[in-house]
Computed example of a mutant assay.
Amino acid sequence: MTQDVVITFNAGSSSLRCGVFRLTGADPEPVGTFGIRGIPDRMVLTRRDMQAGTQDETTLPAPQSPERAHPEALGHMIERLDGIAGTYTIRAFAHRIVHGGADYAHPVRIDDDVMTHLKALEPLAPSHQPHNLRPIRRMRDHYPDVPQIACFDTAFHRTQPRLAQLFALPRALGDAGILRYGFHGLSYDYIAHRLERDYPDLARGRVIVAHLGHGVSLCALKDGQSIATTMGLTALDGMPMGQRCGTIDPGVVLHLIMDRGYSASEVRDMLYEESGLMGVSDISGEMNDLLASDDLHAAEAIDYFTYHFTRNVGALQATLGGVDAIVLTGGMGKYIPALRARLVDALAWMGIALDRDANAAGGPVLTTQDSRFPVLMLPTDEELILARGAAGILDKG
């Protein structure tokens, strides 16, 4: 007898992750993962069986061309999914969609109209949305009878007050959807639920969460809901990131196009792919590379990142009217204790102090007992939020 499962898809420009979640009637239970990293150049498949406690890696054949890398990666993933058919019955696919615009505040079942709407949002998330949509098309062709569910990074922030969403632009543009949407909502959703489960007093208070991955943003939570975030219409805004610029004077963009001869597409590529830590350091967009370097430009990029982290924390604290906790999450938050130390030390003005031993051990509490409030490191789990979203849709029938 097979077991019912949901398959989650988290597709990016250089990686593809699938989670297998058993539907138990309670919270979806993770039983395995498939992941391909190194797209398009050196594709490596990682397979993890959580029940057996095993993990293995396989180097995949080089793609026929860079343009074929993503379709071939999906082909490898389908082979593995077909291989579990004797053990599991796939009830739904749940897809992470970076941009849902103004119309999607909850997971939805994907049909042709939804796909048309999501494709129209590709210009607002050019580094993410096309990759998010590709597996949907492939899964709809290969598994035509299995529902496809979209879960949105923007949806969590739809609770923000109108003033937090507006730009100071002509009203007609705001009415047409030119608003601050915010991103990393699946991650923030997980952290909000984790706080509710493990730190209920904090969950009811004022919390700043920092999602520190290759993309970086901060979110102000009040009573578990988003009331402000650092990203805006696109995932370019806010904190400097690995290769994305973060907040920039719009006049710089106008100057580059009108006075320096850059085309709009050249500026777009610069802001998305050549800026951030990569741009400031001229070395790397990876924080570990910069921390390991003795180059002065690497040090300046780290200092720039830390400065803007502190500045954004201060702004969100003002929005909240105070702060009861800060949470660090995402890949850098989880795996780079040296960065955690720098960020907590930079917030000493708030009356907190780093517990060096706790930080080295990975927390979860990173600050000393006499700090005014705790700073926590809590790993996120976007795939679980995807599985919950799909399970909720299935429960509705």
Rank of each mutant, 00 (worst) to 15 (best):
K222L: 15
L124K: 01
D223W: 14
R194E: 15
L186N: 08
G182M: 10
Y143W: 05
P123Q: 11
V114H: 04
R206T: 02
T116E: 11
D223C: 11
D198V: 06
V209Q: 06
N132D: 07
T230S: 13
L173A: 06
P126G: 05
L186P: 02
R197T: 08
F183R: 09
L118K: 02
A155W: 09
H214W: 14
A220G: 14
M139S: 04
A168T: 15
A125W: 00
Y188T: 10
Y181T: 00
Q225P: 11
A155K: 12
A172P: 07
F152M: 01
V114W: 06
G213W: 06
P161W: 05
G182F: 10
G224S: 04
H117A: 09
D175G: 10
Y190N: 07
A125Y: 05
H117K: 05
V216N: 11
H128I: 02
R204C: 07
H211G: 07
R204H: 13
A168L: 06
L121I: 01
H157A: 13
D201H: 15
E196G: 03
I178S: 09
A228G: 09
A155S: 15
D153I: 00
T229C: 13
A228P: 11
V207W: 12
Y181E: 05
L186E: 02
Q129P: 01
M239T: 08
L195R: 11
P135V: 03
H131C: 10
S217H: 06
L236E: 09
S127W: 00
G205T: 03
Q148L: 04
R180M: 09
Q160C: 12
A210M: 00
R206H: 04
R162W: 06
A172T: 05
R158N: 11
F183H: 01
A168G: 11
M239D: 03
Q165G: 11
L202S: 14
H184N: 08
Q225C: 03
L186F: 04
H131G: 03
A164F: 09
P200Q: 05
D189P: 06
D141E: 15
